[in-house]
Computed example of a mutant assay.
Amino acid sequence: MKYKELIKNQETRIKLLGLLDFLPDRLMIHLQYFIKMGKKLNLKSPKRFNEKIQWYKLYYRDPLMTKCADKYSVREYVSAKGYDSILIPLYGLYSRGEEINFQSLPKKFVLKTTNGSHTNIICKDKEKLDKNKTIMTLNQWVKKRTAKLGREWAYYNIEPKIICEMLLEDNDNEFEGINDYKFVCINGKAEIVWIDIDRYEDHKRNFYDLEWKYLNIKSDVQNYNGVIKKPNKLQEMKEIAEDLAEDFPQVRVDLYLINDKIYFGELTFYLLSGYEKFYPDYFDYQLGEKFILPEKIK
């Protein structure tokens, strides 16, 4: 069902989902899966990776996941693993936009909420930044709790805050912005890596195995048809990803490689919210076969 064609405005879709907050998670997940995937959800004996992500939302509720889904508190987890050096420098933590002292910030920075997705403000010149609009936008994001939209339990109990980080820039990158390396880890082992490029211009995504062999997999983002060279620290990034993933049955570890230095991005527990149509379809089963579901934690 092409629901995005029926309701094209994202804000409208979010509002409609908000009206269904009263529905129990299990019922809502069944409903969303049918609408987005066009098929019934099998929770009793899930085979597809997407199905197992839905099971994961409902039946594996480890408090450590909430800590690590929080973009601020995850820093403590990464540090405890011995990876202080890959944390993006932090300029500030705030409860509301009005607390930000823009005068004390450098010329360039990034503002983001600790519980959101796509809630980032990239500032390349603070003298040109509309500070009042920025404060208003951040406050709106802090008030907006979107975790229940996809019934992603790990985000339910995050206290929304605002963080300010150093802006990562890669002037030598052949693509726009910075490359985002995403390691899909299952039972502590990296299985595949995908790279997102041209994130804010003409977003593209390619999938690779752990030796950087191209996988002919498509998702909701178009593929890049050219050659993307193998990162020279791929093995080190893989080892870091697996260290950070070892406490979880399934997690995606996002890393950046800029000027030969690795930076930590985030940990994501519900890969594409479990509503991603892979092409070819058998990839959903292949990845699902690797994801051995744990004992329930409720």
Rank of each mutant, 00 (worst) to 15 (best):
Phe175Glu: 08
Val253Pro: 15
Ile122Asn: 01
Leu167Met: 05
Asn120Thr: 14
Asp180Tyr: 07
Val74Glu: 15
Gly226Val: 03
Asn187Val: 01
Leu167Asn: 12
Phe175Ser: 02
Asp220Met: 05
Glu99Phe: 12
Tyr155Ala: 01
Ser85His: 15
Arg96Ser: 14
Asp70His: 09
Tyr56Phe: 07
Ile86Arg: 13
Cys164Pro: 13
Asp84Gly: 09
Leu138Trp: 09
Glu174Ser: 11
Lys2Arg: 11
Ser73Asn: 13
Asn42Phe: 05
Phe269Cys: 00
Leu41Tyr: 00
Tyr263Gln: 12
Ala190Lys: 10
Lys4Leu: 02
Asn50Cys: 11
Leu41Ile: 01
Lys218Gln: 08
Leu255Pro: 11
Cys164Arg: 11
Asn171Met: 03
Leu93Phe: 14
Pro63Ile: 08
Asn171Lys: 15
Lys189Pro: 13
Ile186Phe: 10
Met166Gln: 15
Tyr275His: 10
Cys185Asp: 11
Ile192Gly: 15
Ile162Glu: 03
Pro24Gln: 02
Val142Phe: 03
Thr146Asp: 09
Leu138Ile: 06
Val110Cys: 05
Glu11Trp: 04
Ser73Thr: 14
Ile262Gly: 04
Ala147Ile: 00
Phe248Trp: 09
Asp21Gln: 11
Met65Ala: 02
Ile195Ser: 08
Lys189Gly: 11
Leu255Met: 11
Gln222Ala: 10
Thr268Val: 04
Val78Met: 12
Asp284Gly: 04
Glu174Gln: 13
Ala147Met: 00
Ile14Trp: 14
Arg145Lys: 15
Met37Pro: 09
Val227Asp: 15
Tyr59Glu: 06
Phe278Arg: 09
Ser95Val: 05
Gly274Asp: 06
Leu168Arg: 07
Asn171Val: 01
Lys148Ala: 00
Trp212Gly: 07
Glu266Tyr: 06
Asp196Tyr: 00
Leu93Trp: 06
Phe207Asn: 01
Leu20Trp: 03
Asn259Ala: 05
Lys230Leu: 08
Tyr33Cys: 00
Phe278Leu: 15
Ile88Ala: 10
His118Ala: 13
Gly274Tyr: 02
Phe264Asp: 09
Ile192Lys: 13
Lys107Met: 12
Ile88Trp: 03
Ile158Asp: 00
Pro89Ser: 12
Trp212Ser: 04
